[in-house]
């Protein structure tokens, strides 16, 4: 790491839309060659954080730095080092693959000779070579994402910010895409990638769970799953639904009961809560067992409740 610190450094970042806080004191770091997953449901603040990093939004408090440059005050320097791929496909659908790449190369001041070699490499690793003359609007979802990534990479940024790059992409293309991103990390690029898919969490060396504008957990996927302070009670049986209602409406404080089809998972922290749950459910026809949470359970338990629709 240079004296400038980590390629991405965010400290106590705050931003709100009117009354609604979108980011409420978020801090995180992404090192060289690291691929960090920013995980959270819609509305968690992932996109807001990324847009601040790109200089598209100005934070209300805290600081965001890319390669040591302040994202709010030195945005032009930041833009030279950063590649941003927004959630929506954002290229010119009426221009061809090659024309899109060329335009973004020109925009970033990449010389013609340099552009040629980079373009060749990008075509090779993305598999877009045969589609050079095709209009971007006529590409498949996976191809579009690869083209968008290629355009983002044409100026060889040291930092990549990708907002839900695999949303709406088929499974095969998704796997290919992750391999490409792994390769980029090995080359030393710092990547911050957001995803609403919990099963993609395992792809990252480190994940940051964002919920309602706050970081609720951070670490390797295994650490987050294990290190969650919470434990899980699994409730099954004929009275599962009644048990779930009872726990939601008048259960002990500090616990969260979530329904998963025929089961209810109760996240809790202490043994006392464990026994109070068991006491509350006494008399109902259910079995209660303590289970070790999987990654998904851990996420959901940590996020706590109602906005877990994307799980």
């Amino acid at each position: 790491m240079s004296a400038r610190g980590a390629p991405i450094r965010v400290e106590g970042l705050r931003k709100s839309y009117g009354e609604m806080p979108a980011l409420d004191g978020v801090s995180l770091e992404v090192g060289k060659g690291e691929m960090i997953g920013l995980i959270g449901p819609d509305g968690a603040g992932k996109t807001t954080l990324m847009r601040i990093l790109c200089g598209l939004l100005v934070p209300e408090g805290g600081s965001a730095k890319v390669m040591g440059f302040d994202c709010a005050r030195e945005e032009r320097r930041v833009k030279e080092h950063l590649g941003y791929m927004p959630q929506r496909f954002s290229l010119y659908p009426d221009l061809t693959v090659a024309e899109n790449i060329r335009f973004f190369a020109d925009l970033f001041g990449v010389g013609a000779a340099e552009r040629k070699t980079r373009e060749e490499r990008l075509m090779e690793f993305s598999g877009l070579g045969p589609f050079r003359k095709r209009r971007a609007g006529h590409l498949s979802g996976g191809m579009k994402q690869k083209l968008a990534l290629s355009c983002t990479l044409i100026h060889t940024p040291e930092v990549l910010v990708l907002d839900e790059p695999t949303t709406g992409v088929d499974v095969v293309s998704r796997a290919e895409f992750w391999e490409i991103l792994d390769g980029l990390a090995r080359e030393g690029i710092a990547l911050l990638v957001s995803t609403p898919y919990m099963d993609e969490a395992a792809r990252f060396s480190r994940i940051v769970l964002l919920h309602r504008g706050r970081v609720i957990a951070e670490g390797s996927p295994a650490e987050v799953a294990r290190g969650s302070r919470r434990k899980l009670l699994q409730i099954r049986g004929p009275d599962t639904v009644r048990a779930w209602r009872l726990l939601r409406e008048e259960g002990p404080r500090g616990i969260e009961a979530l329904r998963f089809g025929d089961r209810v998972h109760v996240a809790h922290e202490t043994d006392e809560e464990d026994s109070s749950v068991r006491r509350a459910l006494a008399g109902l026809d259910v079995s209660i067992v303590c289970v070790s949470p999987g990654i998904e359970d851990a996420f959901i338990a940590l996020m706590g409740g109602k906005e877990t629709g994307t799980a």
């Binding site: 598209l56 833009k79 030279e80 927004p86 954002s90 290229l91 970033f108 355009c151």
Partner: peptide, 12 residues
């Protein structure tokens, strides 16, 4: 098309 945002994150 969302390309305005792409132009805004370029050094333009």
């Amino acid at each position: 098309t969302g390309t305005l945002e792409q132009l805004l994150v370029s050094p333009l």
